[in-house]
Design a protein around this nucleic acid. Sequence first.
DNA 1: CTGAAAGCGCTTACAG
DNA 2: CTGAAAGCGCTTACAG
Lengths: 337, 337
Amino acid sequence: MPSTIYDVAEKAGVSISTVSRVLNGRNRVHPETRERISAAIKALNYQQNASARALATQQSDTLGFVIPQVNDPFFFEIVRGVEDAASAAGYSLLIASQPRHANEHHYLKLFRRRYVDAMVLAAIDAHRQEILEILARNVPVVLVQQDVGEDVPAFLVENYGGACALTAHLLQHGYGRFAYITGTDYTPDNLERLRGLRDTLAGYGLDIPPEYISQGDYLRGSGYQAMLRLLDLPKRPEVVFAANDQMASDALLAIRERGLRVPEDIALAGFDDVALASYVSPPLTTVHQPAYELGFRAAQVALGMVKEEGPIEPIRVVLPTKLVIRRSCGCSNETGR
Amino acid sequence: MPSTIYDVAEKAGVSISTVSRVLNGRNRVHPETRERISAAIKALNYQQNASARALATQQSDTLGFVIPQVNDPFFFEIVRGVEDAASAAGYSLLIASQPRHANEHHYLKLFRRRYVDAMVLAAIDAHRQEILEILARNVPVVLVQQDVGEDVPAFLVENYGGACALTAHLLQHGYGRFAYITGTDYTPDNLERLRGLRDTLAGYGLDIPPEYISQGDYLRGSGYQAMLRLLDLPKRPEVVFAANDQMASDALLAIRERGLRVPEDIALAGFDDVALASYVSPPLTTVHQPAYELGFRAAQVALGMVKEEGPIEPIRVVLPTKLVIRRSCGCSNETGR
DNA sequence: CTGAAAGCGCTTACAG
DNA sequence: CTGAAAGCGCTTACAG
């Protein structure tokens, strides 16, 4: 049986109020008394019961975090950021992963039980209504890589701008026939990236016909199939932009399997700047997303809102992306061209 | 203000005992009463307070999980397994990541507060003493990729056998001068793999001199430096076995940078069978570890022990590994030789 | 500086 | 089938 605050109080010859005081270190306690209590705590190997504390204080000191049920290194970078921010602030991390397309958002039920003082949802196909309800109860929610309206706090990334910068670079190489391997639309980034691609092409009087847009799902393997379809087109693309590095890497495998070379026969680019991107050969030209920072800052903001009074302010932060030039675009070294 | 069980009871015109009964669905309740209560729950959008429940029942329905503070895809596969097992059993997952070499094991303090009904520790440099203490309090802990003695439950992987099988295959190619890029010794696997390598070589009258063992740390980048040192040896190795795929992939970069080819000039192999292994070129011959299963089963066992009476049985499971032949070893296709 | 008491929101024997 | 009451282990005004 673990010992309780009563055991400590008894052993130290004081009331539990005083024990509680030294535990929480807020009020002043006579040094001698404090000493006795500390000794008793150590002797009994006493640990505060977190549930009892949570019940009494109405806060759990835990941060809820939800990610989609995928095995994407990009998300795990986000997780690391969230974890670091939480533990730096003295919070625990309760993680739930959410299957895509779940009709019931189980984690939300869980988290609404006050299990959690704040939550961050990463790339989750959240229902606007549900989130507003939670916010209305005054528990801070911040979204990462997701957007359900101006009135809910969100950390986003410069998807459009990143895609524009990348496309502009690709155009510099002189490519004219572009193809795009799409991700899914649970989150806004896929469409944003496509929009960046299209707008930039339009500025050069170029367009991208529907058959040059090949459907993938961001996950391992899908880029391979999508690339094969592109390769079967009467005129194969000169350059393909995949919505993430994973799909670009799979596309690379498909291209090579057909006996073609990257970038000589087909140039290639991805998005994310995941570790994989620099290990494939040729290494991928891509757009860096600050995944760790995304998670870290989102968690910081969510936790910061816990203490604040009044309604939650709609914060919206768009983190910059950065073009990373490697060799799959046709550049011969990593400093460009 | 979220509503409580009292609000529901009042609205339904019953006592809180009865509300609790329908909430937990154990005892029988008159269908009509149940109906009224369910309606009240829905109307008030009532959610059980998890802390209060945990305090009353003495269990939190959460599983604690600790991983080292590294960004290794191998660990994230384990995480997925643990998460799936936990949510299948109706448990939440409390995650903590533990810096290597931390003098204070913060997560342990946290988890001992009864925050957690059971815990699994993956590849953590745990102190045997601490773990025995926890076990003594009757909270199940199971280790993954770690071993602190026969009396604490652990899920391990056939590291020795895997290394033997790999080495045997490499020997078949006729290589004689072997090198090893080591990982760290926080967990037993590095030494086990080296032992497998050595024993198998010994069977052929071969040995591996100290200068052919190059120190890495499993993490990104270290394999590059370790390989460079090997390349600077008067006689470069014919084949190098890196303790994980990450280091093997970095070694590949180093070899290529020196203008050498894999496998023609130097053959290469890794361990883990992480996604990266099949994307580098040539793809890595490696040893598959059932990471997801490791996590899933460890969590299942830990959770299973929660309900059981009496002392915790020392379970010890060694999961099989599997040789995965690709091309970095010198085979020309993926079916071997 | 310290203690007695109420309260946080549940569950669970115990009666009936 | 249902209710009253005690208890889970804390915190926090309120007195003193």
